[in-house]
Simulated assay, not measured.
Amino acid sequence: MGVVTYELEINSSIPPAKLFKAFVLDSDNLIPKILPQAISSVEILEGDGGPGTVKLITFGEGSQFKSVKHRVDGIDKENFTFSYSIIEGDALTDALESISYEIKISASPDGGSICKNISKYHTKGDAQIPEDKIKSGKEKASGIFKAVEAYLLENPDAYN
């Protein structure tokens, strides 16, 4: 099994605590509400939301995939870090064993945030991941982040 690692960094004018609440802690409710075409529902299959929790993510009608199972690996509300893995589902394709993500939201000098996302694609055998698939994944992740940011800018009293 190989591991292909990609990093994505996005700056935001939203403070870290508020962004973490919306983008991580309440994402199961917020993202299907503001982006139903991307994610139509999130259902907890086991656990309480903390590490070990397994969720079924059902994608919206416009997605090329139907669903994935996602496991919470770690969450630190004080340091604004969150890690999870895609452990099952059609988004893994024939080439992938799993995909793990690490998100860290930190304060930027201007009072906003810097969101760093490290994605690790665990391949089956010596399978290769086409660059366009990685680029597409980064664009989708960035789009979801920007939609959450836009929601927070339009609703300044949310998640205080």
Rank of each mutant, 00 (worst) to 15 (best):
K18F: 07
F20L: 09
K21R: 15
N29C: 06
L30D: 07
I31W: 03
L35W: 14
L35G: 02
Q37G: 13
Q37F: 11
S40A: 12
V42I: 08
I44R: 09
G47Y: 01
G49H: 12
G52K: 01
G52D: 00
T53D: 03
V54M: 03
L56Y: 09
L56H: 14
T58F: 02
T58I: 07
T58Y: 09
T58C: 10
F59V: 00
G60D: 00
E61L: 04
E61F: 03
G62W: 06
G62L: 03
S63V: 00
Q64Y: 11
K66F: 13
S67Y: 13
R71C: 08
R71A: 00
V72D: 05
D76G: 12
E78H: 09
E78T: 05
N79T: 09
N79M: 08
F80G: 04
F80V: 06
T81P: 11
F82N: 01
Y84N: 11
S85M: 11
I86L: 09
E88F: 02
D90Y: 13
D90S: 07
D90I: 07
T93Q: 14
D94I: 13
D94G: 11
D94Y: 08
L96M: 06
E97S: 15
S98N: 13
I99L: 10
S100P: 04
S100Q: 08
Y101W: 14
Y101A: 11
I103H: 15
I103D: 06
S106C: 08
I114K: 12
K116Q: 13
I118P: 02
K120I: 02
H122K: 11
H122F: 07
H122L: 06
T123M: 05
A127V: 07
A127T: 01
I129L: 15
D132E: 10
K133F: 15
I134L: 10
I134R: 00
K135C: 03
K135E: 01
